[in-house]
């Protein structure tokens, strides 16, 4: 179970790894560059389909107000 268990854990961690800051303005720029089309921009919330995320962090990079963060632990 060892290896599989670790692998599984890693995915679980990642599924809530994207932190959307309270000052996000839902402009959708992050969604436009996500190569996997994982970011759903609602009128006043953001949904990540994180289980397919490849951690490229492009979404974090382009945000005009740095409203995305990756939990780093």
């Amino acid at each position: 179970m060892g290896f599989n268990g670790q692998f599984f854990l890693k995915i679980i961690e990642w599924t809530d790894n994207m932190i959307v800051k309270e000052w996000c303005m839902y402009c959708g720029e992050c969604a436009g560059v996500c190569p996997r089309n994982l970011i759903e921009v609602r009128e006043i919330s953001l949904n990540f389909n994180e289980k397919n995320c490849k951690e490229c962090e492009i979404c974090i990079q382009v945000c005009p107000v740095k409203a995305l963060e990756k939990r780093d632990d």
């Binding site: 436009g32 560059v33 089309n37 759903e40």
Partner: peptide, 21 residues
């Protein structure tokens, strides 16, 4: 608009690289 998610649902490659956005 710039999110361009809908085209991708249909299989078109509408996403942009950061150097083009």
């Amino acid at each position: 608009g710039p999110e361009s998610r809908v085209g991708r649902w249909a299989g078109l490659r509408t996403s942009l690289k950061p150097k083009d956005m």
